[in-house]
């Protein structure tokens, strides 16, 4: 090992953070860019399924709450893109990788939001799963990522609560409304479990990420936390648990659960979910439609600078 590598590993082992101007192995940088940009893309693409319901929210209150949540996701995307850029990659490169399909985003957003109940289920389960992951990532070894996670976690606690509250209203409503809540839970529960990624034994990036402390807990450990915390939440809603194999295991101190449909997981990751094409097409269209705004900013700056130059002369 060179002295640079030594120094780097010493910091990692001492739980010190790596900061942007520190020397770091190329593979560490690449691994971080992959994970952080995937995280940023997820925040941004994640606005689509929920945005789908802003104009159709059942009350003005639900509408302002949803608007506010989607606005947060845009902000979180920005924090994460900025943190990723400290690794020496440009925003344009990151966006291009998303649009070409080279970079991934959380597969959960390739599922459609068919009913209002889905908006509640996303806040409760999808944001809930994301929070479990992000709380763990507050301790990640890369300083800017860690600080971004701390800020995001602080802002995000309302996301899960508003989703649960919306679903609780449905679950306590008419039989049709309760059925809507059950249907949303059934459709989003398993994809939410998949958000934690493949089993540790199958995960391509896990071992190195753990060694470098980019990830602090394994996919399976984080998933178990989420499974455990969700059981009482389903009970309070008075809904049926979608996993018929869920059972408390006294010895482990955790719930045992049924197996995830991994064929579905890989099929959606590989582009065959319900909405994969739509999500990326929409992103490209929105980006193209914004070209005139970016052009206008440039034109205005040029005009201002020309005026300044004239005044000086």
């Amino acid at each position: 090992m060179t002295s640079q590598e030594d120094n780097f590993m010493r910091k990692i082992e001492a739980d010190e953070k790596i900061e942007p101007k520190d020397w770091m192995p190329e593979a560490y940088r690449k691994n971080l860019i992959r994970q952080m940009s995937q995280h940023a893309h997820s925040e941004v693409i994640g606005m689509q399924p929920e945005g789908n319901w802003i104009t159709r929210a059942p009350s003005l209150r639900r509408k302002v709450v949803l608007l506010s949540k989607v606005q947060d996701e845009a902000g979180h995307g920005l924090y994460l893109y900025s943190a990723t850029e400290t690794l020496g990659i440009t925003r344009a490169e990151l966006i291009a990788a998303l649009q070409s399909g080279e970079a991934k985003y959380a597969s959960i957003f390739n599922y459609p939001t068919l009913t209002w109940g889905d908006v509640g289920a996303i806040g409760w389960l999808v944001d809930g799963a994301a929070i479990v992951n992000q709380v763990s990532l507050q301790r990640t070894s890369y300083g800017p990522y860690s600080r971004g996670m701390i800020r995001i976690c602080k802002e995000e606690s309302f996301h899960q609560r508003q989703g649960y509250e919306a679903l609780l209203a449905l679950a306590n409503g008419s039989p049709e409304q309760k059925q809507m809540a059950q249907d949303s839970l059934n459709r989003f529960y398993w994809p939410a479990l998949m958000m934690f990624g493949p089993h540790d034994s199958e995960s391509a990036h896990s071992a190195k990420s753990m060694e470098w402390k980019i990830k602090r807990e394994t996919n399976d450990d984080l998933r178990q936390k989420f499974i455990d915390q969700t059981v009482p939440q389903i009970e309070v809603l008075g809904l049926e648990h979608p996993d018929k194999a869920i059972k408390w295991n006294e010895e482990r101190g955790h719930y045992d659960s049924g197996e995830i449909d991994w064929d579905e997981f890989y099929s959606v990751i590989n582009g065959n979910g319900h909405c994969n094409r739509q999500r990326v097409e929409h992103h490209i269209a929105a980006h193209d439609e914004g070209t005139w705004v970016r052009d206008a900013i440039t034109a205005y700056n040029e005009k201002k600078n020309a005026k300044k130059a004239q005044n000086v002369a």
Binding site: R61, V64, V65, S68, F158, R161, Y164, E165, L168
Partner: peptide, 11 residues
């Protein structure tokens, strides 16, 4: 916009 805070939601 108190709904941007977690405490706004009573569970």
């Amino acid at each position: 916009k108190p709904y941007r805070h977690a405490t706004y939601y009573v569970l």
